Measured scan of single mutants.
Amino acid sequence: KLLSSIEQACDICRLKKLKCSKEKPKCAKCLKNNWECRYSPKTKRSPLTRAHLTEVESRLERLE
């Protein structure tokens, strides 16, 4: 599967780190437990900047 097509777990399953069936409108866990089942939009991760990478590398060197 391509990364862009990976389905996201519902908010509660993601928060509780449960295996989500990803069914809509309610996944199996939410249906069974009568929880409100919501699927928040995916958040875009910002790409690493060179400055951040350099900072992490220098912190790693100090720890070694």
Rank of each mutant, 00 (worst) to 15 (best):
E23W: 07
K16E: 02
E36G: 11
K17S: 05
S58G: 14
L3N: 13
S4P: 11
E23Q: 14
E57Q: 06
L53I: 04
L2Y: 14
K16A: 02
L31I: 12
L15I: 11
P47M: 04
E23V: 11
K22I: 03
A51P: 01
E61K: 10
K26L: 15
S21F: 02
L2V: 15
K29W: 00
E57C: 07
L31S: 13
A28M: 14
E57K: 01
S5R: 11
R45G: 00
N33V: 04
A28R: 14
I6P: 12
E61V: 15
R38M: 15
C20R: 03
T49Y: 09
S4V: 11
L18I: 11
T43V: 12
C37K: 01
L63M: 13
L63C: 10
A51I: 09
L60C: 14
K29Y: 05
E57D: 08
R59I: 03
C13G: 00
V56F: 03
S21N: 04
C37G: 07
E61Y: 12
C30A: 06
S4M: 14
C20I: 05
T49Q: 08
R45L: 03
K32G: 09
E36K: 10
P41R: 03
K26F: 14
S40W: 05
P25Q: 08
L18H: 13
C20E: 06
E23H: 14
R45N: 01
K42S: 08
R14N: 01
L48A: 01
R38T: 15
C27Y: 01
L63T: 03
L53R: 10
R38H: 13
L2K: 12
P25V: 03
E61T: 13
K16N: 07
H52Q: 07
K19Q: 05
N34M: 14
K16V: 00
E61Q: 13
K1S: 14
K42W: 06
P25F: 00
I12Q: 11
K17M: 02
C30P: 02
N34T: 14
S4D: 13
A51T: 06
E7M: 11
R62G: 05
P47C: 04
K32V: 09
E61R: 12
K29V: 04
H52Y: 14
I6E: 09
S58Q: 15
E61W: 13
R45D: 00
R14L: 06
D11M: 05
N34R: 12
C27R: 08
E23F: 07
C37Y: 09
H52A: 02
P25N: 04
E7A: 09
C27F: 07
C10E: 11
I12K: 10
C20N: 01
C20Y: 05
P41G: 08
Q8T: 09
K17R: 08
E64C: 09
L63N: 03
K32M: 10
K29G: 04
R45S: 01
W35I: 15
D11L: 06
L48R: 04
R59K: 10
R38G: 14
E55T: 12
K29A: 05
V56E: 06
L18P: 08
R62N: 06
A51G: 05
P41M: 08
E23G: 10
E61N: 11
C20V: 00
T43K: 05
E7I: 11
E23L: 08
T54I: 07
T54P: 06
C27D: 07
E61F: 13
K19M: 00
L18R: 03
L53Q: 02
K16T: 00
L15F: 11
L53N: 02
T54V: 07
R38A: 14
C30V: 05
S21K: 03
C27Q: 02
E7S: 10
L48N: 01
C20G: 06
A51C: 10
S46M: 05
E61S: 11
L53V: 12
K44D: 04
L15M: 14
L63W: 01
T43D: 08
N34Y: 11
A51R: 11
R50L: 06
L18F: 00
K1G: 15
C37L: 02
D11Q: 10
P25C: 02
P25G: 10
L31K: 15
R59G: 04
A28W: 14
K32W: 07
V56P: 02
R14H: 04
T49D: 00
P41D: 09
C13H: 02
K32E: 08
H52T: 01
E36N: 14
S5F: 09
E57I: 00
Y39I: 02
E36Q: 10
L60W: 00
L60F: 06
T49I: 05
K44R: 12
K22G: 03
